[in-house]
Amino acid sequence: MEAFNYRKAGSVDEALVALNGADDGKFLAGGMTLLPTMKQMLATPDTLVDLAGASELVGVSRDGDTIVVGAMTTHAAVASNSDVQAAIPALAALASGIGDPMVRNRGTIGGSIANADPAADYPAAVVGLNATVNTNKRSIAADDFFLDVFETALEEDELVVSVSFPIPLKAAYRKFPNPASRYAVVGVMVAQSAEGIRVAVTGAAASVFRADSFEQALSADFSAAALEGLSVDSDNLNEDIHASAAYRANLVGVMTKRAVAAC
């Protein structure tokens, strides 16, 4: 790993000052992606601003019909939180299936969504549950947050503070994990709320996306049978050593049906 300056921030304000004072600084959340990326020299920031000391970024609370998860809350903490388990069990289950236990003890929701790995689990939760990403500057709707591979709507000096999840009527997440990494080859969050049905797909394309035709079919008839004969176009899907685009397209249908059945 190349040398860099480590700065510990005690608050969001301190973190922003430290980042703005660096030439090429990055925020450090749990470090589960950033540190391995730096070991491989794929990222060489001159400064890391550690957010672990900013206590306002940690914790889960229920605010009426919304679950608010602080950006530095670990996957393990989300998975074991009784408010999350009671209000959005699909979110707790998703968090409990990320990576492995040691990764879940360090990795955070803010780090995961800011990184926007195309195969990460949390993007499916954020988009599928129609969450709002709250930053130090503004609130960003889930549909506007994820732009492309490792690309979000976040500006250079913008920090995720929390994610607000409206509590759905019902929801379920199903993924086909890579057997080695546990990243989603394809993962699908299906959620039903007063606003309608959402089907968010991660792992299959450059970025999380909504399966519109599936949402329409499920709006008319919320059953796995309603998806018979429907498929997503494989043209823009990922193709790699793990799965072809056509295989991923098929998996989107299978995982959606399983999620609907589990709702």
């Binding site: 470090g31 391995p36 550690d50 492995d100 040691m102 990764v103 003890n105």
Partner: peptide
């Protein structure tokens, strides 16, 4: 590369991979 877990230790009582954490953290 944070995959094998041979470096697992406990930090404040929770298992973590010591190869994917800075001393400063």
């Amino acid at each position: 590369t944070s995959q094998c877990g041979a470096c697992t230790i406990h930090v404040n009582g929770s298992a973590v991979k010591a190869c994917t954490m800075l001393v400063a953290q």
